[in-house]
Nucleic acid binder design. Structure first.
Lengths: 211, 211, 211, 211
DNA sequence: TATGAATGAGGGTTCATTCAT
DNA sequence: TATGAATGAACCCTCATTCAT
């Protein structure tokens, strides 16, 4: 489902062209929303006519599904699978946050990531499939928070609330962060880590405040 | 356009119907997004025909503007103005978070609050006006974080990043929180406060962990 | 039909108010065309709401009928009946032209007169009734041209063609004439008379050209 | 917008369909007026659905603009450019009148010619552009009248008034002329020429009346 | 007399989608 | 692979009109 690059059944496309379409479409949908971005505009941005675009995609809805799965592929490849095996739970969370933040700020991945959280357009099975993939990350975070509490690395907080606070803070970034503004990506990552894991450390491990 | 109550300017004769329309429309727009919610659907939800709805509103875009200003009115009334005068910065932030969370979970206000963050729909002056009002809250939070750091009540974190982490975490709530789920509103408020202000307290002031 | 001033059956209105409405409506319809002028705009121009206007009129179409008959009343009163009894056919035509031109340039009557020649909105009986009234003027002109030819006052031209040339020239005036432009009303009347009745005079009666 | 032939700018690949649409639309607009003719009706008359028509046109207003420019193209091609170079001013005017009359009576061109005088619909630049083209003809007529007066071929009349009398008489034709009525096209042309240039001739040059 | 509130029909326009070529 | 031409459905919005008050 999520690796076979295919516009329609049986037709094997040059995967690059298809991915390019997904990324361009993602950019448009990200800018204007799913309903706000028309097939006409997407096609034009791809240098195609509407009918030409339809050679590559099955439908607008399916296009969204594909973008979302592509986004999840990217996310799992660059975030989840990079951090899952980190043994120390606190370090695991800090690294996940860093990589997750970069997904939302980095140029090629940000649009695709943002769309993952677009208002519900999908329904039924497709929605379920995407949500199942998303939940894997949620569970991973919850588990990691629980572990970090168990090891005493962070204070006792509700792991579920902490998880969604984490997700909210990170996914909200695109609404205010300006790539060339006062805050750099590094500062952003550091800042977020500070707020969450500076803060969640047990009292004695905070860096000496005055020094 | 041709009725007595036009948003915040009009005579206060029968504002109930208009407010009701704003709230119903907010609910639909919140569910489906601005582009996804059709005037037809909004009208139907109001028990009106399209033309009947248009007796009350000027245009779909103006409707959004009105909802947003109504949302800001509610927000300023129930959050900002309730906490601005709290002298202690940490208590001020904790209270702001509590009241803000309740706006997002409470039935009548949640959609209206959320729509405030519909983006890329408004343009020009209207966008500016709304953004100016939003910025007041952002500045208030930034200022409060800075003060709380200055007083040593919370650790040194970037106030801007902290502010947006706060906003992201709180506004994200509507995506996952279920009013009759495992977590109660009180637990949610507590949890969020814990994550942010348990966590942001300087090392020595953390409540004894075991007790 | 055309003198009883009545908005709807049996209701006797202050005729002034009703006439005022007809004149205001005529002005709007003249400016924007029948389809282009909305009941809303007409009502507003009358200082009424839509529903208020409907107390006075039966329907938009009937309003047009009334305006047209009012226009025909005015026209017959100020043009036809003033000239019909002039014995000399050439003087009769010259005077008709003068009075007709003034109807099209004069402030209170121009809109009403112009509408008389609006693109066909009316159909059936109503159209027939108006056309019957219009035809009276056409016949009058044709007859007068024929007489003037018979008396030798003007050269032999097709009376029907001359009549419609006359009507076209006069009714076209509103498309180009500016009340405060280079040409005065008097010059306009003189000019039109010159073109038609200077020109149509038999060769020997033209004023000595060189003097 | 997305077809090859866009008015007078596009490639000349298959302009027939487009021109056909312009002509059909012109017929409808001429019959019912611009506001009175709906896109739905125009589309149907073209054998298309509304959306199908919109593949060919940009908007209703632009359609009108295109019709008008097409009309001006035809007019300049068949009238202005055919007579401009005629040296004798009186013959020039008589020929212009003949050709102009035929534009208004001839089946394929009449509606397009008439619409040129739809007023109060266009605004701004487009209106200016059309008016500039129209003025060329008006100036041509004025100049020709002046010349004919100067050469003594016609009596002294105000050239501007004469011009608009000419235009009014000619453009009014479509309101009354019936192609298969009592008057033939040739009689019409002759009649109009007689009224204007029989009539405007100086007294001595009139053809012997009795012969 | 007049109005506030409402409506069904229709306005122009754009949508995602199809299909012969 | 791609397109030109087309479509039905839906879009936002305005229309003339009505009716209880």
């Amino acid at each position: 489902m999520n690796q076979a690059v295919q516009g329609r059944e049986g037709v094997e496309l040059a995967p690059n062209r298809y991915r390019e379409i997904l990324e361009i479409a993602a950019r448009m949908i990200c800018e204007k929303g799913y309903e706000g971005a028309s097939i006409q505009q997407i096609a034009q941005a791809c240098g195609l006519t509407k009918a030409g675009l339809y050679y590559h995609i099955q439908s607008k809805e399916h296009l969204l599904v594909e973008i979302m799965h592509y986004g999840m592929d990217l996310f799992e490849e660059r975030v989840l699978s990079q951090v899952e095996s980190i043994p120390d739970p606190l370090e695991r969370l800090r690294t996940a946050m860093a990589k997750n933040v970069l997904m939302v700020t980095s140029d090629r991945t940000k649009e695709i990531t943002i769309i993952l959280h677009e208002h519900a357009t999908l329904t039924g099975d497709e929605l379920d499939r995407i949500n199942t993939r998303k939940k894997r990350y949620v569970r991973f975070l919850e588990r990691s928070f629980s572990e970090a509490i168990a090891t005493g690395q962070i204070r006792r907080v509700d792991p579920k609330v902490a998880t969604f606070a984490f997700l909210g803070a990170v996914n909200w970034i695109y609404k205010w962060f300006q790539p060339d503004g006062h805050i750099s990506e590094e500062q952003l990552v550091r800042g977020m880590q500070d707020v969450f894991f500076g803060g969640l450390e047990p009292r004695s491990s905070a860096k000496p405040e005055g020094s």
